[in-house]
Design a binder for these strands. Sequence first.
DNA 1: TTCATAGCGATAGCTAAACTATCATAGCCG
DNA 2: CGGCTATGATAGTTTAGCTATCGCTATGAA
Lengths: 228, 228
Amino acid sequence: MDIKVHFPDNPRLFLKNPESSSLGTKIVSEGIRMIKKHGLENFTFKKLADKTGSTEASIYRYFESKHHLLVYLISIYWEVLQIKILFNTQNISEPWVKIDKLIMVITNVLEVAPNIINVNLKDLHEIVICESSKTYLTKKVDEEDKEGFFVSYKKLVFALSEILKEANPHYPYPRALAVNLLETTYEQYYFSNHFGELTELGSERPDSPTVKSFLESLIKAVLIYKEN
Amino acid sequence: MDIKVHFPDNPRLFLKNPESSSLGTKIVSEGIRMIKKHGLENFTFKKLADKTGSTEASIYRYFESKHHLLVYLISIYWEVLQIKILFNTQNISEPWVKIDKLIMVITNVLEVAPNIINVNLKDLHEIVICESSKTYLTKKVDEEDKEGFFVSYKKLVFALSEILKEANPHYPYPRALAVNLLETTYEQYYFSNHFGELTELGSERPDSPTVKSFLESLIKAVLIYKEN
DNA sequence: TTCATAGCGATAGCTAAACTATCATAGCCG
DNA sequence: CGGCTATGATAGTTTAGCTATCGCTATGAA
């Protein structure tokens, strides 16, 4: 099944809606390519303008700054993830099966249905691993939060925590756990790519345990566990 | 008990050892104050020079860039944390008591012995919460890793994972869990400060559960849990 | 057909960050 | 006294980040 992602339409995230024109779409798709390739720090609107055959001034008509663009792109990812989770957990009544599906989706976004046709999800996934926390690790978080910069992320966390709650309505920290689940996933991928000695998980040897197995055991343990 | 932290002495982290002169010490202490106050992005060597009554050129004699300074400062924190953990867990034979102590230290660095007299640990702690992941979320990670930029962090993770292993030698992911324990701590503090809706933990209401209780239940559940 | 407008390229220019380089000087050490 | 170390003073470069103005072109409504 192929679908298009619903791009975030919070008008605070952009000056002109990138979906409204061909340059806008190019900014988004080339932006994803370039941030993935060069990293956020080495990425500039000047370079993006050159790649899109456009000018700095034109890019600035869409996004106030590269930080705004980053938040926009990362939000797309959270929207995708939410769609995929919903799609794969709907109509499942058994909470533990739901959780398995949930973890399956989080650790296999690229393979899992529905297929997203209007975004390069592979590159976007890499960006999320390396840059997503930079969206909120800023002096302006609170201000930007009020403008709704993080609604996509929040919706996702709420959805996750609801699923966790179904498995154990008495677990006292479902939201904290949901955040932990999400963040740990990307952290572990990053560590397995760059600090192999600091995690058992990952890509080094083909027989090594996976992030998925780590998350499954973590979530199950935590939700089943009863204090004394 | 009062002690001095052993500053990281990896000569790749600095051009001239900041412990070797009065300006060096000022750079470190004022650097901590200013990064905490303004955030890494708004912090510049120019401002630091003004505050220390010095010049940009003089600062550059100690640190190649503000990124190098950040890595240096964060490393100090990891050294402190390791000292405090060692201090509070030594001579304890019961693994679960050790883990309680461990979590107690991580969530109470500021109150726990020994007292560190040569560093403003409170400010440094805030910096770790907001900026520590930026030390490694860079395109140059692998290169910097080879230069030993992250040895303090790695030593700490290894020490943590050893303690976790004592409680359950068969748990398959002690290092992944150690990383998770550390990172989740700062994440949850950050979220409780800025995204109150996304965590049950924290400072809002006085009766709300603490990061400490969350971590305790998490670690215990995970280490006690047996699959099927 | 015409005319308004949206979209965008072209150009220019400004401020500040991030460095680098050179020289002079003050103070301490032998 | 002579030399070395630490640092201040000064100056200059490059690039990121951002703003402003102008004019062309395609599109679509009147």
